[in-house]
Design a protein around this nucleic acid. Structure first.
Lengths: 174, 174
DNA sequence: ACCTGAACACCGTTCAAGT
DNA sequence: ACCTGAACACCGTTCAAGT
């Protein structure tokens, strides 16, 4: 059922992922879904967890850049993946996993927890905006003369990662 | 009319900011709104621009930290402010203003544009998550024994800002 | 344990018609 | 130029009742 929701998300996007549509995809009445999940929020939280399952276990041998890229790629693997994770982040059902991976890469606990959180917030913001632009582009709701907005996404991402990696390196020197 | 939408947003939050509700607040039929805006998206884009109007003009004398804080505070000034800006960011109707301010603070054009974009993505991600947690808390949809999730938000924000400020400083040294 | 059927209180958007 | 009235095709969620 979460699998079906994940597949549907990738097909139609978050705005069109409705309980009714998911139900009909499962050949079931909409009300049937509420035996399995109390509401749509918790269904989406389960979907968000599944998306972040692709992030590898925390490992201190990974660089911040590598971990950041792994998280980014997990979010990019499904349409509107970042927005789903963001919208259910408050419930903290998954996410910890990704943050733990970042903490490990930053090389230490304690003082680096805040930096890991900040790095995670950057990644989520980055990918959400990127996926939004991808959608706007597919709709054609963008100036035709404007340059492909997703073209320099990698450059921006690397700039952000470089900032956090530099901070991490300077701390290690201390 | 945008003013009314802004006020309503702050009162009821983004999920409850419907065209129908806004219409009734204006003592008008819902269909009347569509003479002024083609759809809800463009109405929200206008609201997003209004939110970012509070960000000061680009000024090279401002530090990255100061500019970042100004943007954060503009987003925090209205309920769900960051989410509104994110959801309409693809259209690029405002946002440029905030990014220009960051570019100026980073002290230069060209090579720092990507860093400014990354910093902006961090701020948006940070505040979106913060406001989401604030909402979850007001609903009580969070473990009662968990520590106030907004408590260390400042620390996380400063850690992120420090990362971008450090990168900017090291570039200046070159 | 798991699902149906029917209802409740909503949505965004369109469009002829009014003034 | 600006708004109404009525409709269309949807929503999330609840709850008695079925099996």
């Amino acid at each position: 059922m979460v699998e079906c929701a994940l597949r549907l998300l990738d097909e139609v996007g978050l705005p069109d992922l409705s309980m009714r549509r998911l139900a009909s995809e499962l050949d079931v009445q909409p009300s049937a879904l509420y035996w399995h999940f109390v509401n749509k929020q918790s269904l989406l939280a389960a979907v968000a967890d599944r998306i972040l399952d692709a992030v590898p276990e925390p490992d201190a041998d990974w660089t911040v850049a590598a971990t950041a890229r792994a998280i980014r790629d997990a979010l990019l693997a499904y349409r509107d993946g970042a927005e789903v994770v963001m919208s259910t982040y408050a419930l903290r059902l998954g996410a910890r996993r990704a943050q733990a991976a970042l903490v490990a890469s930053l090389g230490g606990a304690g003082t680096d927890a805040a930096t890991a959180d900040a790095a995670f917030e950057f990644i989520l913001g980055h990918v959400t905006l990127l996926q939004q632009r991808m959608h706007a582009q597919s709709i054609g709701a963008v100036d035709a003369d404007a340059a492909d907005p997703t073209a320099n996404a990698d450059e921006v991402f690397e700039a952000g990662v470089a900032a956090f990696a530099a901070l991490s390196a300077s701390r290690r020197r201390v």
